[in-house]
């Protein structure tokens, strides 16, 4: 079986700055992979390249052996790649349930139903409630998304991605802006998604505790380059990685 995701010599320059330089990596099915790196390592740009928000200046992105480098974010999503954003991105005035429902319908079609569509709404509602139940937001289904506290908004965004039943889930700093307890809960949730849903997850994360606890494998970016890859134990021992982070300290 081909790897679920592969990048070949992926490159993205902004003017003179090479935000992502020559990155080739392979993610196998079922893996929980974390991407780490000091600030400005190019993690977010790399994520945007994968999901199609930003186009590469060179190189390829392969999803299930298909070259998707030229496809839009929407097309990649339809091919099984769902993502969340570092800064929470929701439909604030719509209800929590509606947010998830839009996500499901966008994936499976049905958003173009002009009139009626009650049966369709009922069907997607079941799926939406299931996803909300998974992240423990079911009892908030009716309130506008904007009224949720920040932590719950992050969970809602994960639920929207989950509800799309993707093959590959990209999580961009899911613990960003969360307190200690919420961070632990989110880490547990990510692990639960990986185990119970057998989903391949790619995670960008700055909280090292989370990363070393949940990830199967870790890839390290530094100044846009991939400098190391391996199990958490291997990465912990890696001298180059230690230097990269030390350099970041001063």
């Amino acid at each position: 079986m081909p790897p679920i995701l592969e990048t070949r010599r992926l490159d993205r320059a902004f003017g003179a700055l090479r935000a992502v330089a020559d990155v080739s990596l392979v993610v196998e099915r079922g893996e929980l992979r974390a991407i780490i790196g000091p600030n400005g390592a190019g993690k977010t740009t790399f994520f945007h390249l994968l999901s199609g928000v930003v186009r590469p200046t060179a190189g390829q992105v392969l999803l299930k052996d298909e070259d998707v480098s030229g496809l839009s974010a929407a097309a990649r999503c339809r091919r099984g790649m769902s993502r969340t954003f570092q800064i929470t991105s929701l439909f604030p005035e719509l209800s929590v349930l509606e947010n998830v429902r839009i996500a499901i319908q966008a994936k499976r079609g049905g958003n173009t139903r002009l009139l009626g569509g009650r049966a369709l709404l009922a069907r997607t509602e079941a799926g939406a409630r299931e996803a909300l139940g998974f992240v423990n937001l079911e009892d908030r289904a009716a309130v506008p998304a904007s009224t949720l506290p920040h932590g719950d908004q992050r969970l809602l965004e994960i639920a929207m991605a989950l509800a799309q039943e993707p093959d590959l889930l990209l999580l961009d700093e899911p613990t960003q802006g969360l307190g200690v307890e919420e961070t632990a809960a989110t880490a547990a949730l990510v692990q639960r998604i990986s185990r119970e849903r057998r989903l391949t997850i790619l995670l960008v994360e700055h909280d090292m505790d989370v990363v070393f606890n949940v990830a199967d494998r870790i890839s390290v970016l530094h100044f846009g380059r991939l400098i190391a890859e391996g199990s958490p134990a291997e990465i912990r021992r890696n001298v180059e990685v230690q230097q990269a982070y030390l350099g970041d300290m001063d």
């Binding site: 929407a74 999503c77 339809r78 139903r113 009626g116």
Partner: peptide
């Protein structure tokens, strides 16, 4: 109130997010 109508409101709220969910 139809699925289409709700999609419109979602686009109003956050067009970029809507696009990453799989539809133009």
């Amino acid at each position: 109130r139809s699925p289409f109508g709700r999609a419109l409101q979602a686009i109003r709220e956050n067009e970029r997010k809507f696009a990453t969910l799989g539809q133009d």
